[in-house]
Design a binder for these strands. Structure first.
Lengths: 267, 267
DNA sequence: AAGTGGTCTAGACCACTGA
DNA sequence: CAGTGGTCTAGACCACTTG
């Protein structure tokens, strides 16, 4: 009973359904419930096309805005994506890429590989540097770097992509007294990246602290990361410390659909 | 120019707006853009009421479904919440609670405190155990525990709340050969919880590995955690290891609005 | 009772996709 | 071209909150 992903089974789905809606619960939610159940059970698999709006209208005997509301529910739950002119499809699930934050080890960036390349192996990778600027630190960044608010920082803003797929945005902030005039203030920071340069400059990195949160993306973030509705972002604020002081604050926004963050804790 | 949070400024907002929409971009998106800008700028602060649907209809000269679409956009971005019969409000922001996963230290659970109490200090806390059951391990859990698929496990499912506010769901899975017949299989596992019992039973915990992801909640999760639209959940799969074997897989789902996960990495 | 949001209809026109 | 989803209207009735 094998059926390859992406097969259209609209017609089968159609005849298998009861077409009656019970009073008490809104119609659009009942329709969403049925479709959701079909997705969860696997009856509708990854990439399969959902019944079209027209088909749902006929099946359930409701107005178009009602079936659209049902489909919107599924999209905002991250279960389906609409493609204009094509149909609504079960959203392809889950990370084809995983990230071990554990790989923030010296062996990684010491060897000239960026840490986000850790699991990439032989894939093609890109890090499109949007820009490197010198700015006044925001209050939050200044506090985390333990420098006076408004002090100059070098900011490296980047959009990381792999095989053309945007994965994450990052904005690394370093105190200007450390980074200005060095390779860190250049678009290409050289082999091993910022962390390798910091060590060379006499700032050996002792520990990283990461704060992890999740939220829905802003419209700008959704555009840059090509996020469909219903996909949140994970935000990471990483602070790199030497034994003396914090030397970098990196604000990272990742496509939560493509990442698994991995941490190891030793009590 | 101080204005306390929650103040209604509908009328001010109304007169300050242009009421013309430009062609090219959908009307509901332009309306959402204006409201979003007001929220981001702070003109509309935490808990403030947005203009009502009626006011927006008059201001922009569009149909009701159009302004509703605009308000839906903001709700799904997590910027606003609607309250039936009251209005639409700027969503109160961000964690009044923070969690240091770093606190998975022996000193915490050794001292009889659960790790999710680490930062709670003198707040009132509750952990409503939904149930403790014996089940066959799912494929995923079995693989993580390195036991044959279908082997019995003890499952402790809980809903954690603080001051009546639900924070997280968890489902801890332990191999039956370790946990069955012990306090771990009881609803109240005793002081220090599962981890303290494991140590007493001769399973000293050496390391924890956590995999962190984010996604939109299922309807059930949204109901249990009382999540409004536009708030994702963070999922954590924590595996506790002795030097010999993995002894617990804990599947955790947290309200991303109330948590900051914190990790420390030493290269 | 007045004002708010929640659901729903029966249309319309448009933009995009694919054969 | 037919079929798909995207936007929008002008109504309707309902449910909830507040004074």
């Amino acid at each position: 009973m094998y059926r390859p992903a992406g097969t259209s089974i609209d017609r089968e789905w159609l005849v298998a359904r009861p077409r009656t809606l019970k009073p008490g619960r809104p119609a659009y939610q009942q329709i969403a419930d049925e479709l959701r159940a079909s997705i969860r059970s696997g009856e509708l698999g990854d990439g399969d096309q959902l019944p079209s709006e027209t088909q749902l209208i006929e099946t359930f005997g409701v107005a178009r805005m009602t079936v659209r509301a049902a489909l919107q529910v599924l999209q905002h739950e991250g279960l389906a994506v609409a493609e204009h002119g094509r149909g609504v499809f079960v959203r392809q699930r889950r990370p084809f890429r995983r990230r071990s934050v554990q790989r923030l080890s010296r062996s990684q960036w010491g060897s000239g590989r960026a840490m986000w390349e850790a699991d990439t192996a032989d894939d093609r990778t890109f890090a499109a540097t949007i820009d490197v600027t010198r700015e006044r630190a925001t209050d939050d960044v200044a506090e985390r770097l333990r420098i006076p608010s408004g002090t100059d920082v070098v900011v490296r803003r980047r959009l990381h992509s792999v095989d053309g797929q945007p994965l994450q945005l990052s904005a690394a902030h370093l105190p200007a007294d450390i980074a200005a005039g060095t390779a860190i203030a250049e678009p290409d920071a050289g082999p091993g990246g910022t962390y390798a340069r910091l060590e060379e400059l006499g700032h050996p990195l002792e520990r990283f602290v990461e704060e992890v949160q999740a939220r829905m993306p802003s419209p700008d973030e959704a555009r840059l990361l090509v996020l469909p509705a219903g996909v949140p972002v994970i935000t990471v604020v990483r602070v790199a410390h030497t034994s003396e002081r914090p030397v970098e604050v990196n604000e990272i926004v990742v496509n939560s659909d493509l990442y698994v963050l991995e941490y190891e804790i030793r009590p």
